[in-house]
């Protein structure tokens, strides 16, 4: 469903994504991890057609992201990390606006809006301007907007931002069911526990390159670590966090070591 071949993106001298090659089949939830600045969001932006690759190629749902970007965009949903939306609008208006951009029929848009508002428990607020909403409520609308057109591939960048525990659980269950029905989920996050529990496969990125790719169990075995946290630290060459934190706390409090 997602095929990536030597995908590269440079910003001036900086190589943000460096020759990534991946293949993600339909029905899989792929966790995409990496330290800050590793190139996760840049990869997603290339796969969603927001920016162009400098080199390499990628196809999503069978379409080339550069040559057939409109076909790709018709088949994907995206939840950005920023969760930004036009807050002057109501959820109804915003979802209607997005539905129209996807060329949906008015009846389908209304039906889907009602379904999503019931699912996320925002039916009561469907006609309030979103400026009044909490971050979690806005996030629910962004998630709804990513799924309103029934995409085949869903890209999520920190989708649990702001969601309460119940809403987070609901979303995770929804993603699992969607994957079971054959949709591909590309899930970027820093919350390793969620990735560990939710994803069928984990790809770890460091300095723009893929440093690990496999199921959580495979990665644990490969690194001989018992948790994904440990796997992540080792593969991204993080120093001993405990020592680092201890030294820094001493420097803050002024205690001589």
């Amino acid at each position: 469903m997602i095929e990536i071949r030597n995908l590269t993106r440079r910003f001036g001298d900086l190589v943000a994504v460096d020759q990534i090659t991946l293949s993600i089949p339909a029905g899989q939830i792929c966790g995409y991890l990496g330290p800050n600045g590793a190139g996760k969001t840049t990869t997603v932006k290339m796969l969603t057609g927001m920016i162009q690759p400098t080199a390499g190629s990628a196809s999503v749902a069978g379409y080339d992201v550069q040559k057939e970007d409109l076909e790709v965009k018709r088949r994907i949903g995206y939840v950005p990390e920023s969760g930004a939306l036009y807050q002057s609008l109501t959820p109804f208006e915003y979802l209607q606006f997005v539905g129209r951009l996807y060329g949906m029929k008015d009846e389908d848009i209304v039906r889907r809006i009602h379904e999503f508002s019931d699912f996320f428990g925002i039916r009561e607020n469907i006609d309030q301007r979103m400026i009044e909403f909490s971050k979690g409520m806005k996030q629910k609308v962004v998630i709804a907007s990513a799924m309103i057109h029934n995409p085949q591939v869903i890209f999520l960048d920190e989708p649990l931002n702001g969601l309460d525990a119940n809403a987070a659980l609901l979303l995770k269950k929804l993603l699992r069911n969607l994957a079971d029905e054959g949709k591909t989920i590309f899930y970027c996050s820093h919350i390793l526990e969620v990735v560990e529990n939710l994803c069928d496969r984990v790809v770890i990125l460091d300095k723009g390159r893929v440093v690990a790719d496999g199921s959580v169990g495979e990665l644990k075995e490969m690194t001989k670590r018992s948790s994904l946290e440990g796997v992540f630290s080792e593969l991204t060459h993080a120093e001993d966090m405990g020592e680092l934190a201890k030294a820094f706390s001493r420097s803050i409090t002024g205690v001589e070591g």
């Binding site: 969603t48 057609g49 927001m50 409109l70 076909e71 965009k73 018709r74 994907i76 995206y78 950005p80 920023s82 930004a84 939306l85 036009y86 807050q87 002057s88 997005v98 951009l101 996807y102 060329g103 907007s145």
Partner: peptide
């Protein structure tokens, strides 16, 4: 211009013909 200028990501992700 707008306050919510960051919301313009939607134009780049939606299949705007």
């Amino acid at each position: 211009w707008a306050n919510d200028w960051e919301a313009s990501w939607i134009y780049h992700v939606a299949p705007l013909v």
